[in-house]
Design a protein around this nucleic acid. Structure first.
Lengths: 346, 346
DNA sequence: GTGAAAGCGCTAACAA
DNA sequence: TTGTTAGCGCTTTCAC
């Protein structure tokens, strides 16, 4: 168990004796608690600085807070999550909180539960769950004891807050854009993974369902074509190959996420077809790579930084004591680029 | 301070009284410690399962371990880190450890220090630092008290282990490949950020220096052209614009990282030039997107999963008590794709 | 405004 | 093999 010594870590007792005060006083200064004179504060702060003291999170956790916000996410491979984390960090670091990330590894219920438990066991003061697939009732069990914000699920809960993108609006932007360009055979690539989340809860399900609804509303029911693969490069590639094999083949493909759209571009290219000449392609998330000149992917932008920042604020509020539930929705915008154009004349 | 009650969390005392044994016995069962009868083990395990008990990390931390491996990384936006984490997680989860990630936010010394401190304060049993920019002596201070593995730095330390890619070999693969194709005006895009890491410590510096050395060895000193922007899409884009403005312009660009190479492809495209007809482009890391048909980027593959797995193993060994230092290097391979070809005839 | 003392949930000596 | 007990470093009453 590696008892590599090194000098013993500085504790609150060391600071107290060095400053000739009680540990209580030091604790109060640390927490900016009520009832410390300015002289006391300065004296204690000097001792803290001099000794290079930093409180141990574990000891604090036994009685108070850990100043830790736990973040659960499926996988760091998704660049959209990076935006969310930037927003979150910006919001909470000013208040002295540290964001700590654990991966669930994907839509696996057991592993997701283990990851949530890991955060609870480490006594995170608040937890941000990004697109979890666990059943709502189970999430609520956690939320009853730990302030919780769920990001990206279309649901309401009395015990946790929800931050989400208006995926219906985003999907409408895409489908209306394609229809306005003259497309009728518009296909969609989705991700069927859902775990125990409700039927129309996860973004991929809302996007797929909205796509179907809009196609129907425009009298295009017969052209509905969905490839249920996954929101990854591989999924987009495989889904597109599947869609291109149909007769007649689609003139536009709406991939529910940019990474899948990149895979779609690859498959279209490989099939000897051009974008947007033969096929228009649209993504979702407006990842940085979508803006690159040689890719130039039309995509839906949802402001991840704002979502993360808001999630952080809501968590801090709950830590302060708020118990009412909040729901925050951001409205996405369409970023048209060169991957969409009118369908070929034929 | 949000004292949302909910029933009190199950503690070791609850388990002990429910199983009619001492807390010591429960503790021993939890840790698979020596000296528990099979009957005791079963009885205690039954109580644990029945009550749904999970130990609190903070309380354990006060006396023993937290079963947490802290991972420090600059930013989750780099997809290569995802491979490393997959390997790490695979290795440590079997031993009951949980990986917990904190971002430093980039090559900022203060923020990086705060992130390392955050892991130390939370008493991670071991820390994996991915490409930190802090001075070696400072990292060693941390390593003296916490088992540490540093990934991606070309240095030796007596107190921490090092896992790295042979960036010299990788760079050689690239430059030799381009020279074999007939290129002479080979340019390079690097990232100058270095913090307090030694001069030839970080991958970007080793790659740049090796590029210079090889050019010189091939009698191409006069064609050395380096754009020191950054290892990002934006950096690759800006660096390529800079390089293309030179006269005569390069016929090949070696971007030190795939994301920069993607930016380079965009800039080349935007300049009305073709890849590889006018300009060959090479990246590093072999990100998934590099393999997509419409991108098809020649790149250097370094096995991130193996690196992460090894880092995990080394940390577990150190936690067990090893104090000697280990250095592990993986050998990269070149993955030639359609972004490289002989230079234009002119 | 300040400090003494109890106690959070575990683990590690030590006794039985 | 099992249990008793002290104590890790903080925060929190509750005196003064």
């Amino acid at each position: 168990m590696a008892t590599r010594e090194g000098r013993r870590r500085v504790t609150i007792t060391d600071v107290a004796s060095h400053a000739q005060v009680s540990t209580t006083a030091v604790s109060k200064v640390l927490r900016n608690a009520y009832g410390v004179s300015e002289a006391m504060r300065l004296k204690v702060q000097a001792a803290i600085d001099e000794l290079g003291y930093r409180p141990q999170a574990a000891a604090r956790a036994m009685r108070g807070q850990t100043f830790t916000i736990g973040v659960l996410l499926p996988h760091i491979r998704n660049p959209f999550f990076a935006d969310i984390l930037d927003g979150l960090t910006e919001e909470i670091s000013g208040a002295g909180y540290q964001a700590v990330i654990v991966q669930s590894g994907g839509p696996d219920l057991r592993r997701e539960r283990a990851a949530i438990d890991a955060l609870v066991d480490r006594q995170a003061d608040g937890i941000l769950m990004i697109a979890p697939v666990t059943a709502r009732t189970q999430l609520e069990e956690t939320a009853k004891t730990t302030p919780t914000v769920v990001l990206g699920r279309h649901e309401r809960s009395a015990v946790y807050d929800v931050v989400l993108d208006d995926d219906e609006a985003g999907t409408e932007l895409v489908v209306e854009h394609l229809i306005a360009l003259g497309h009728r055979r518009i296909a969609h690539i989705t991700d069927p993974a859902g775990g125990r989340a409700g039927p129309l809860t996860l973004p991929q399900h809302v996007r797929a369902k909205t796509y179907e609804r809009l196609m129907t509303e425009h009298g295009l029911t017969e052209h509905i074509a969905i490839a249920a693969t996954s929101y990854t490069e591989e999924g987009g590639y495989a889904g597109t190959r599947e869609l291109l094999a149909r007769t007649p083949r689609p003139t536009a493909i709406f991939a529910g996420m940019d990474q899948a759209a990149f895979g779609a571009l690859a498959a279209v290219h490989e099939a000897g077809l051009t974008v947007p000449g033969d096929i228009s392609v649209v993504g979702y998330d407006n990842a940085r790579a979508a803006a690159l000149a040689h890719i130039s992917l039309t995509s839906v932008d949802q402001d991840g930084a704002i979502m993360g920042k808001t999630a952080g604020r809501l968590l801090l509020e709950r830590i302060q004591g708020r118990t009412s539930a909040v729901r925050f929705s951001v409205t996405p915008t369409l970023v048209p680029r060169r991957s969409t154009a009118p369908p070929p004349a034929g």
